[in-house]
Each structure stands twice: as structure tokens, then as C-alpha cells.
Design a protein around this nucleic acid. Structure first.
Lengths: 210, 210, 210, 210
DNA sequence: CCTTAAACGAGACGGTACGTCGCGTCTTTCA
DNA sequence: TGAAAGACGCGACGTACCGTCTCGTTTAAGG
């Protein structure tokens, strides 16, 4: 995950950037997020934890937001996948629980919403979040839908592929979990996940053209 | 919306607090949020815009978060209500569109997620957000459900009142809209709102015990 | 010695600047000059020594140079005067020794030349040095000359007052001492001071129109 | 003027140091001094101007001070000499004007006093300045005194050679000019130089034992 | 010719200080 | 006694240079 690349991409001369520093910085960022949260995180502190000079950090990341997005992306990469549990309903329940578990980590609790907030008036950041985090989550929806169609749980064939519906399902699933965890501050337990899965499967079955 | 009350409420001597100052401060806060976003907003700037001394501001609010929550609460109060459109599906579509319109305002785009993020490690702030913003939104769900039961669109009677299901529906609706607007950055237009409404009505009908 | 005054001079409201801070800062500056020299002096360190925030220091002085000039000025004020020793030659010897003693202090050794160097491309600083340090030294020359005329050691009367000659004598005396101490790094002892005094008195007598 | 020599002098293998680089660096230093002054001069900038890597510069000079001293020494070498104008008084006037002209150059105005200041707490630098700059100036005094004795303007013979008096005269002449140019910021014109010369010749004649 | 060894450019690195900004508190004067 | 004005201690900001360190690339002299 090389962050902001050097200005002159395929440089050949000069001392190369330390790959170890990248790792140390991202690890330190996660550690600091756990202890201090997004608001309390300072780049100077991250640099100190990583055993790295502040300038080294600024050479690679434009600011706090970019750094945190990359650190979060690593977190999501580590923990998000779609286990095959045999049915659409079970798959939904499974991914909801995993997603909630990631959101409930202390690194994520405060920082994910914070960078989303900043992205509200920073298009470049929005794009970075989409590429590094959101699109990989959305991929799970596509994967789950295709699997369900293969299983015959959802209609397959002409016109059954509807990107707009994929988007809808993604916003509903991800949004519901995020809202439950971040705003309502209620637990995402198997029961809640099961209710959500049943609501969605019911809706998709009853209104396949939604 | 009188903010933090004076320490000695029943004091009657001395110069009374200016009610006009409260209004000016909240207006200035919204204005500053529009121009600078949550991260760029500074209390000194708000005080200057409001034509008020910084001390006056600190006497009434504990900090940036509390101030922004109150400013947002005023915004939601102004714009959120549940018009009776004759059917559950139409009611959902209507409230979704109104909710999205509020979220899409520049004041809201950056600051709502920011205070939610801060609430991630500040229980008092979480409670303030719930009381000032979330509970009033959730009230719409209760209202809409009751209306649909009265209309006969949803089963009524013994065991039909399920607070956990109300919570689920609320997280799904609010979460989907917030995610669509804030994270996916896609428009919430009538078509999308209609799809969401059909999905939900279908789900509630097919899986009434969800 | 109030340094840079507030922007709005005759302000009446607001908390007034702490006079004690001024003193503490100038004292800390002298202390730091002794220990670290001009080049090693940092404003952050001065602020810390003075028990004052960096911002307080920057509110009063534009930078290192201005601060050091004011600190030096206080030093010269404390130690420079012209004792009446009964003859022009003895007066010169006396003032030379005193002047050399001030220059030889560790505060002065490195910092006086440093600010003079900076003044080489900073007219405002040049003026500040002139007003705070040089003009007060030059006053001693005028005083000594007048005294010598009163005593009859130098011609008095029409045309005997020649500002250009006062300037010359000042540059010769001050320059010789500074050069001896700073550049040649040789001691200014009574013998050297006596030789200089005899050279000057001889010159003034032999070439009164110089 | 080869600066710091390689560590292993009698090495014969390996790429030899570029003589051109030395020149380019010193030229760049003078250019940067003119534009930025001593305080604003940075070694990175000098290296860039010289078209040379920073390492090359640091391989040859220990730091800013040493570099500037060498650059100044070259300047003095170019411009200082003692023309024979036929009389002591005219010789003094001549050398004073030349000296002042060098001091008044922009390279010299800020940097000479700056390195003298640094030398105030750096004995090695003091020695380098003495060897590279001061002693060559002082040589002019010895030369001028000898010439005046040959001409019979000053007493010659037993005890007429007094190193302490040479030192005194040097400090007086050099100090007066430096002070006039650097501190008083007044022009050293022929009239002033003539007054100084008359004062000195008068003093030396009236007080030969000074 | 071909090795060897140093000098060279480029630029990343750990540091330190910079001067600024916002915080939340305090001390004034004014109404 | 509340409010305005603004100074205050504090701490983080992002930048600029410092002097050192790797790199890969010349460039001579010596084998």
C-alpha cells in the first residue's frame, strides 16, 4: 500500500524510500487511533510512535485524513470477506456480523465517521475513501448476489442484473449496520442480524424489481 | 433552544443573558459550517460572526461539539415532519426524500458525521445527539408504523407492537439514506426512494416477524 | 522599555499586557545569550526560561533580532556612563575601559556583532540599533568633548563645534575598542587604553581641524 | 584555495575532487550572500546554485561559517593592496577608501560581522578568520609604517619598532572604518578619510611613544 | 583494458526550530 | 454583574534547513 508516491514517479537516483517506515507509520496510526481517537490523533505523535521524523510522514501523506483512510483500509482488508454459509439469508447475517465487528473496533468507531465527514467537502478524499474502502465492501454485495443467483434463491437470467439494485442493497445493508453501531449505539448481535437478513430476503423476494 | 442553563438557575439579580445572543450564535454557527465545514469551524470565528465575545459563547456551550449539535438540531426541527401521503409506501418515500434533503445541505454534509464521530468516545455527547436529533427522527418511524396499522397495511393487535422491529426499521431507513448521501455520494431521487420503499414494504409484508 | 506596542495604541478595554512578562523575557534573553550565544538562542527556549508562552513573546517582538537589541540596550544602559576623571585623556581612558568591559561580557561578545550583521540588510533594525544603543554611546563623546572645552583642553568658541569631527572621534574610539575586543581578540587593559587616549589627544591637539 | 583536504591525503586512486566545483561553490556563496545575506544563506541553496550535491559541499567545508570565511577571504584578496601615494597621510587615506569599498559590498555588509559574531564563541573559527582575513589586512599597516619610516615621516632606529603600537594603529584604522560603515552607516568619502588620516598622523607625530 | 576506489547527483532520513493558529481561561473596563 | 475586548499558557500545526545516510553513476589511476 504505497501511499502518496514521489513526485517524479520512476525515479532512479537518490536514496529510496524506506518500505519499513510505511508499515511502522500505519501501525502507529492504528495504535494512536485506538488510544486517542481521530480528534486526539496528531501527526507528530504518530511519527514519534513510528520512530520516524515528522517530515518522513508528510513526505508520504498529505495530512491526517489521507493517513487515517489508508490505516482503515488496511483494517478492512484484514477482516472483511464473504464466507459461504449456504444460503443468502445466512450469508447476509454473516457479513453483517463481520462488518459490525470491524466497525465496533476502537480504531474504527471514531475515525471512520470522521473521515467521511471530512470527505463531505473534499472530493479527492471522497474518491480515496471510495477506492480504498467502499468499493471493496460493495464487491461483497455483488459476490453475494451472484452466489444467491447461482443457488437459485434469486431470479437469474435476462434483466436480472441491475446495478442500481446492487447499489440500493449495499446502501441498505452497510447503512443499517453503520447506523446501528455508530448512531444508535446498540449491539449488532445474531438476533438483529437475522432480523435484518429476513427483512431483506423477504423484500427481495416480494419485490424483485425494487 | 436555551443551551446550558446558568449554574444558579434561580438567581434574579445581575444582568440577564441576552436571548438574542443565543440566536446570533446558532445562526453564525450554521453560516460558518456552510463556509468552512466542521473541521474548519473555530469558536473564535463563530463569536466574531455573531458579534459576541468568546466568553459569552463559552458561558453557554461547553465546546464545539455541543454547539454544532444544537445548531443541527434546529435544522432538523425546521425541516423534518411526516406528511400523510395516504399509504405506507408513499409515506416512506416522502420522509426519505425530506431526510435526504436535510442531509444534503452543506451544514449537514460535514458536521453531522463529525459529531457522530466525536460521540464515538464521548458518552455525554452521544446522549445529547440522541435527545436532540435521533429520537425526533425515530419518532417518525413510530408515527408511520402506527398510521400504517390504522390503515390496515400492517397487522395490528396482540404482539404487533415490537420496539426491536421499530429500531430495525429506523436503522435501515435512516442508515440507508445517510449512507447513500454521505458515503456513496449518489443522489436520493424519487426513483431511489421508491425502490427503497418497495423493498421495505415487501419485506415487512413477507416477514412480519422480522 | 515597552517593546512593540499593541496595534491599537490607546486601547482601553481588554486585559492589559503583563509588565512582568517583559522583564522576565529580557532577563531570560540575556541569560540565554550567555549560555548559548546569538546563533544558539531560540525564541522557544527564551519563552520557556521566562515562564511565558511563545505567543506572548511574538506578540511583543517581531523576531530574534529585535529582542536581542532590546536586551543589549538594557545592558548598555546599566553600565555605560562617563565618569569625570579630571582630564580629557583620563576621561577617554576611563570610557574605553568601561566600554570594553561591556563588550567583553558573554552576552555581548556574540550577539552585538550578530545584530549589526543583520542590520546590514534591514534598515528598520539598523534604526532600532541606532536609537537603542549607538546614539546613547555617541552622547558620551559629545559630553566628553564639551567637558574638555570647558576645561580648556580643547579650543572653544566659534567653529569649534564640528559635528563631523564628533562623528569621527566616535567611530575611532568605539571602532577601535570593538575591533580590539571582537576581531583582534586582545585585551583592552589600562595600558592599551592609555596609548589610545594619548594618540587621540595628540591628534586632536596637533590637528584640531581634523 | 583548496578547503578542507581529503582525509587520506596521499591516496592516489579513486576519482579526484573537481577543482571546478570549488570555484562554483565559492561563486555561488558570494552570489547568495548578495541576495540573501548571511542569515538567509542556506547550504542547500548554495549547492543548488553551484550545480553541486549537498554532500559535495559538506565534503569540503565543515559548515556555513567556514564557507563564508573562505568566500570573504577571496573577496579581500582581490581588492586589498597598499598603493604608494607618496606620503603616510595619502597612504592612509588610500587604504581607508579601498577598505571601505570592500566593506560596503553587499557580500561583506552582512556576512563579515556575522562570522565575527560566530567567532565570539568558536576559537577555531576565530583563528581561521585571523589567518584568512585579518592578518593580511594587518600586513598593510606594517608595510605602511615601514614605508613611512623609510621616507622619514616617522622616527626610525632603536626602539622605533613597537608591535603593540602597530596593533593599536591597526585596530584604530580598521575599527574606525568598520564602525563607520557597519554601525554608523555613514559614507566613507575622501573627506572623512582625510580627516582620519590627519588625526592619525597628528597623533603619531605628537605622541610617538603611544 | 579492466579493476578499483573515491567523488559525484540525487534525494530520503531523523532532528530541531520556526512562526502561526486555535483552544479555553483570565483579567481588565464599560454599560 | 454580564458582556466586550483581548492577553495569556498551552500544544499542534505544516515548513524549512540541518547534517547524515544510502543509493546508483561517473571518472581517473594502477594493475
Amino acid at each position: 500500500m504505497p501511499p502518496t508516491p514521489p513526485a517524479h514517479p520512476q525515479r532512479r537516483t537518490g536514496r529510496p524510500r524506506s518500505a519499513e517506515a510505511d508499515r511502522a507509520i500505519l501501525d502507529a496510526t492504528r495504535e494512536a487511533l485506538v488510544e486517542l481517537g481521530y480528534g486526539g490523533l496528531t501527526l507528530g505523535d504518530v511519527a514519534a510512535r513510528a520512530g520516524v521524523a515528522k517530515t518522513t510522514l508528510y513526505r508520504r501523506w498529505a495530512g491526517k485524513n489521507e493517513l487515517v483512510v489508508d490505516a482503515l483500509a488496511a483494517l478492512f482488508d484484514e477482516h472483511l470477506e464473504l464466507p459461504d454459509r449456504g444460503s443468502l439469508r445466512a450469508d447476509i447475517e454473516g457479513v453483517v456480523l463481520r462488518f459490525a465487528a470491524v466497525l465496533d473496533r476502537p480504531e474504527t468507531r471514531t475515525s471512520l465517521m470522521a473521515v467521511v465527514a471530512e470527505a463531505g467537502h473534499d472530493a479527492a478524499l471522497r474518491e480515496r475513501i471510495r477506492a480504498a474502502i467502499v468499493d471493496r465492501q460493495k464487491h461483497l454485495v455483488l459476490l453475494g448476489r451472484a452466489r444467491a443467483q447461482r443457488r437459485g434463491e434469486l431470479p437469474d437470467g435476462d434483466g436480472a442484473a441491475d446495478p442500481a439494485r446492487d447499489d440500493l442493497i449495499f446502501d441498505v445493508v452497510a447503512g443499517a449496520v453503520v447506523h446501528r453501531v455508530m448512531v444508535s449505539s446498540e449491539p449488532v448481535d445474531p438476533e438483529w442480524a437475522d432480523r435484518l437478513a429476513r427483512l431483506l430476503v423477504g423484500g427481495l423476494t416480494a419485490a424483485p424489481d425494487c
